[in-house]
Design a protein around this nucleic acid. Structure first.
Length: 232
DNA sequence: GCGACAG
DNA sequence: ATCTTGTCGC
C-alpha cells in the first residue's frame, strides 16, 4: 500500500502553523445552514497512530444519513507530519485525512470530525480547517471540553448547554450535547458551512444509541483495524 | 513562572 | 492518541 505524501508547503514550526490558522480562519462560514440533518450522505473521519513506527492511518466511512447504513469505506496510510500540540492538532491529522477523502468515490454532503471546529484557541480547529481546505460542510464532535467551560446539560438525551470560552468574555464556541440519558455529553462545534443549531441536530441524529455519532464510531473502528494490519 | 490542554 | 483485565450495570 502506498504511503501518503505530506504536502510540500505543510508548516514545520509551531509559529508558522499558528500563522496558517490565523490566515485561513477568515474563510470559515459559520452561518450557513448546511445540508438538512437526516438527508444525503455523511462521512466520519478518524486517525490512529503508531508514533514509535512513525505510522498514521486515517479512515473515512460514508453513511446514508437516513438509515445510517454504510455506503463506502476507505483508508490511507501516512507518516507522522507533526507532533501533538494542543491547538495544532490539524497539522498532525489533516494530511492523511485529506488523502483518505480523495479515495472516496461518493461525495459526502457533510463530514463529521473527531475534535473541534470553532471551539479552538484561535477559533480554527481541525473541523474548520478541513472544511476550508475541501469546501465541504464540516462539524466537530469532541469527547472532552478542552479548555472550555460548560454547565452540565439536563440528564436526558437531547439536552444541551453552551460551551464557553471563559477567557474571552464567555464567548459561546460550541455546545455540550447529551446524546444518551445520564451519560457524559459530547462537545459539538461548528466546522464550516453548517451553523451550530444544525451541527447539534446532525449529532443527535447520528447518535441514536451510543454516546458518539455512528460516523465517528465506524471511522474509529476502521482506522484502528487498518493500523493493526499496516503495523503487523 | 506554572499548570492545563481536542487527538 | 496509547499502555491494558476484569467488572459493574442496563
Amino acid at each position: 500500500m502506498t504511503t501518503v505524501r505530506i504536502p510540500a508547503d505543510w508548516p514545520t514550526t509551531e509559529a508558522r502553523a499558528r500563522a496558517v490558522q490565523d490566515e485561513l480562519r477568515t474563510r470559515v462560514e459559520l452561518r450557513e445552514p448546511g445540508p438538512p440533518p437526516g438527508t444525503g450522505r455523511v462521512a466520519g473521519v478518524d486517525v490512529a497512530y503508531d508514533d514509535a513506527r512513525d505510522v498514521v492511518v486515517a479512515a473515512a466511512v460514508v453513511l446514508d444519513a437516513a438509515s445510517l447504513a454504510v455506503v463506502e469505506e476507505a483508508t490511507a496510510v501516512g507518516r507522522v507530519s507533526f507532533p501533538y500540540v494542543p491547538g495544532l492538532l490539524a497539522f498532525r491529522e489533516l494530511p492523511t485525512v485529506l488523502a483518505v477523502l480523495e479515495r472516496l468515490t461518493v461525495a459526502p454532503g457533510l463530514v463529521v470530525c473527531d475534535g473541534y471546529g470553532r471551539a479552538h484557541p484561535r477559533r480554527f480547529g481541525l473541523a474548520s480547517h478541513l472544511g476550508v481546505l475541501t469546501g465541504l460542510p464540516t462539524i466537530g464532535v469532541a469527547k472532552n471540553p478542552f479548555t472550555f467551560a460548560y454547565e452540565e446539560p439536563g440528564a436526558r438525551r437531547g439536552s444541551t448547554s453552551p460551551l464557553v470560552d471563559a477567557g474571552a468574555g464567555g464567548e459561546v464556541v460550541g455546545c455540550a450535547v447529551r446524546t444518551r440519558d445520564g451519560v457524559k455529553p459530547v462537545f459539538v462545534s461548528v466546522g464550516h458551512g453548517v451553523n451550530l443549531e444544525n451541527a447539534v441536530a446532525h449529532t443527535l441524529h447520528l447518535a441514536p444509541r451510543y454516546r458518539l455519532p455512528e460516523s465517528t464510531r465506524r471511522a474509529d473502528a476502521l482506522c484502528r483495524r487498518a493500523l493493526a494490519e499496516a503495523t503487523g
